[in-house]
Design a protein around this nucleic acid. Sequence first.
DNA 1: GGCAGTTGATTAACATGTTAAGTTTCAGGC
DNA 2: GCCTGAAACTTAACATGTTAATCAACTGCC
Lengths: 167, 167
Amino acid sequence: MSDSKAKGSKDARKVPMRDFSQSLPMALLRAREAVMRQFRPNLRAHGLTEQQWRILRALAAVDAIEVTELARVAFLLGPSLSRILRDLEARGLVQREVDARDMRRGVLSISTKGLKLIAQVAPNSEAIYATIARRYGARKLAALHKMLGELEQSIGGGGEADAGDDE
Amino acid sequence: MSDSKAKGSKDARKVPMRDFSQSLPMALLRAREAVMRQFRPNLRAHGLTEQQWRILRALAAVDAIEVTELARVAFLLGPSLSRILRDLEARGLVQREVDARDMRRGVLSISTKGLKLIAQVAPNSEAIYATIARRYGARKLAALHKMLGELEQSIGGGGEADAGDDE
DNA sequence: GGCAGTTGATTAACATGTTAAGTTTCAGGC
DNA sequence: GCCTGAAACTTAACATGTTAATCAACTGCC
């Protein structure tokens, strides 16, 4: 009941609901944004968006990978991935070929140019991450990771669920 | 179909970098998405997006609020907010007037229609949240909230200048 | 070996994220 | 009063999120 100092309103709540401060999605969004705000300038300086960077990193970790699998790993939806790949391919950062056994499937891999770009961006990125880990505490960070993973699990990170519509 | 899963991807890492599984932004994104996946259907059923819902909730908690302040509270950027308000206003869910003392400022408030919509959506939303809290554990959830807030703090999510690294 | 149904991927359409530029209104200094 | 700079939004332009529709290629079945 402590009311904050929002503009001329003391207890003017018009509906009964948890306050924003207790919104889980909001808390996750804010935390993520605070983190990303540290990385974005570095990526931007190399002409990369956050998503493009995720894709390059994912590709750098394997020899080759299919589009659908890449979407799963980089946590991007198909449509977004299609658009981004079109661009990255045009920039010569990734290469693509068609699977000989199943022509529907595209097989992707990172190019030499892409690897060089990663080599330019990674050091700074790692340094930023290290700073965050140092300030927040490495142990605490590990604990946070664990809890986030468990949250995903308990909710069912797969994707079903429907809380029903009452009416 | 006896071969391939991804040709020899085991040890094919081409660059030295943390694995995706240890990416903090990714972990936060995944967790948030898992949570939002629970809420979206309910919102969508009432013709609301996540951001529109955030705005209505924020407005319902106060008598009136300025655009800039609303952006801060609902954690939205100005441009997004402008577009969304245009729509919500057209739908009669929010009202806007101009501050008499400073004509640059817009003062917003939720309409009766908006309040009714919230009343329709909130119960289900609260129920979904309760389910998550029950499955994950109320205590653990509180701890997670706390850790997320601290992460923001330690990084400097308060909206000040950057952490200064430099080149 | 041809058709129905399915899968992998892209395209379409609309909403938001993000940064930059533009507009109107204020506040001060002259 | 006027000019300059800042503040509060809004527009603009481009990239991604999200859902639905489309398209081509594969699979199973007869």
